[in-house]
Computed example of a mutant assay.
Amino acid sequence: MSRSWALFDVGCGLGEKVSNGETTKNSLPELYRYIEETSDNPQKYINGILFPELCLGHTVFIASDYSMIQSLNKSGNLSSVSLNKPAVLGWIKLEMESIRDWGGYSSDSFEKAYENIYCGLSDEDRLVVNSIQDAIEHSKLPSQREIYHSGLHKVEFFEPDIAPEKLAKYHWDNFLALPRKPVSTVPMTIESAMEFYIRYTDRSVDLLGYNWS
């Protein structure tokens, strides 16, 4: 991973019978079972990750693996990358909250371990940890880059099979956001969809007074 410039196909899809990613992410017993099955010395492996007391989720293992690869290849692709441990801790906190099956393990002990680490951080690093949660919450908000949420007045009426030029006029001349529904009442081919997109874009450019040159 540190030295390759390309990926290769292993010839195996990651279907439900192959990938256990979500299971090990949401279930602590399943995670530990996986570690037991894939490691010659599970405890040694756990002791070697970035935050051994927070052995849960996926992020800590991925970050630890990258850190190990980096230590083994000083001149590889990862040689100039620095690991943001506070950010890793922020993701661990999010993954801790998503665990549905704690098995016989105490969630309180993990919460206490997290708090002990968090309290030992500098104010700057705490801001980084907290920024992960803030970024996730912000990502759930409607994007202002989407026409429907760009500040246009939202209306309830809609015209089936509307022409792309007329839709552009509603958006950029009348400043109205029609409901997000299919523009065609019949299935469109890729070619038809692309033609609609091009005609809509061309008319939008004209209405917005944008000069391509």
Rank of each mutant, 00 (worst) to 15 (best):
K25C: 06
K44V: 11
E115V: 10
D206V: 13
S39F: 03
E95V: 12
K112D: 13
L14R: 03
Y200W: 13
K169D: 13
S192G: 04
S150C: 13
T24I: 15
D65R: 11
N174M: 12
F196M: 02
Q43L: 08
L121W: 07
D134V: 08
L50R: 02
S64V: 14
E111L: 10
V183I: 15
E137I: 07
I46R: 08
G120S: 15
S106G: 04
G209N: 13
Y105T: 03
Y197D: 07
F196N: 01
R203S: 09
K17A: 11
D161M: 05
T23V: 12
F51T: 01
F51L: 07
Y118R: 12
V205H: 01
Y197V: 11
N174E: 12
E53P: 00
K85E: 04
E146N: 11
R180E: 12
K140C: 05
D123W: 05
K85V: 00
E146R: 14
D40N: 05
N20Y: 03
S79M: 06
D134Q: 11
P142H: 04
F175K: 14
E22G: 05
G11R: 08
Y118G: 14
L31W: 00
K93M: 10
P187T: 08
E36P: 07
W212E: 06
D108R: 12
V81N: 02
L178K: 00
K166D: 15
A163D: 09
K93I: 01
E115C: 07
S64D: 08
K154T: 03
A87E: 09
K17W: 08
E111G: 05
Y197L: 10
A63Q: 00
D101V: 08
K181N: 06
D206I: 12
C119A: 14
W212N: 04
Q70R: 15
A168T: 01
L152I: 08
I35L: 14
R100V: 08
Y170V: 03
